[in-house]
């Protein structure tokens, strides 16, 4: 079991870490756009304090599945869901939880960095708290510092917190977005190809960060980069489109090492050895 305090170093103060990482269970989930299923029949358990990677060819429904986990999917016009997503055993689609509350518990980081262009670095970090009206006026320096430290950005920006967030490099912007997501203190962090707009060294920085934050959060990451999945993920799930025009399916889930060394399904093996997708 995980010890109560982080054994790997003093970088985070355990007393300020969020209470618990949550578990997600996806049960028989089908997500559709305009009545056409994009991904169907998914059953998947996502364990807390682990990194789960979703891999698979383009169009297999990785992003759609990920966006079902914080109900962002339903913000798309014409989108629909059947089945359930259990967040610590409570179904987010039938229980009376507002999407707003779900998204405060399940944070998300996107493929392209999206700092709010009208806000300073500091305001970007606090944006989630202000938008959710969970914070009064004030500078909240402690919250800003804590989130930026956790996102590994503090030392680079501590002297220019008032500069616009858009003035940072791409990798820094992405870490700013991670800080912004962490400041809300979610239990789960969803990441959709968070490194695909970054150069190799910024990618490594973000990967180190992911390994760091999984001590306290549940992380689900979509990636096209199989080495990345191998580097950061404890569990890997492979999705594919069985035949053109059909919805994406979850083919295989397992510990990352097992998936990459001895896949049980032919489709998985073809994909990771580069024969398909």
């Amino acid at each position: 079991m995980a010890p109560p305090t982080s054994p790997t170093g003093p970088s985070t103060d355990p007393s300020t870490c969020p209470a618990a990482a949550a578990r997600i269970e996806v049960v028989d989930l089908t997500a559709s756009y305009h009545g056409r299923p994009a991904v169907a029949g998914v059953n998947l358990k996502i364990e807390p304090r682990q990194v789960t990677a979703l891999i698979g060819p383009s169009g297999s429904g990785k992003s759609t599945l990920l966006r079902c986990m914080n109900s962002m999917h339903l913000t798309v016009p014409g989108a629909g869901v059947t089945g359930s997503v259990l967040l610590d055993d409570v179904d987010i689609y039938t229980a009376k939880i507002s999407p707003v509350e779900i998204r405060q518990r399940v944070g998300m980081v996107f493929q392209r960095p999206t700092p709010f262009p009208t806000m300073s670095i500091r305001d970007n970090v606090l944006a989630g708290l202000h938008l959710g009206r969970r914070l009064g006026r004030g500078s909240h320096d402690d919250l800003v510092e804590q989130a930026l430290v956790r996102a590994g950005l503090w030392h680079e920006v501590k002297d220019r917190l008032k500069a616009p967030g858009g003035r940072l490099s791409g990798g820094q912007q992405q870490r700013l977005c991670i800080a912004r997501a962490l400041a809300v203190e979610p239990e789960i962090l969803l990441m959709d190809e968070p490194c695909s707009a970054l150069d190799p060294s910024a990618t490594l920085t973000v990967e180190d960060l992911i390994k760091e934050i999984k001590q306290t959060y549940t992380v689900v990451i979509v990636t096209h980069n199989l080495q990345q999945a191998a580097r950061v993920a404890d569990t890997t799930a492979f999705l594919t489109v069985p035949a053109a025009g059909e919805p994406g399916r979850l083919v295989e889930v397992g510990p990352t090492e097992r998936i990459f060394s001895t896949p049980r399904q032919q489709a998985t093996e073809d994909y990771i050895t580069g024969k398909a997708g």
Binding site: M72, V100, R103, F110, F116, P117, A181
Partner: peptide
């Protein structure tokens, strides 16, 4: 950019907010 709207919604902001 729609990315900004999505980012805001994903932070738990309502549509109006």
């Amino acid at each position: 950019p729609d990315d900004l709207r999505e980012a805001s919604l994903a932070l738990g902001a309502s549509h109006a907010r």
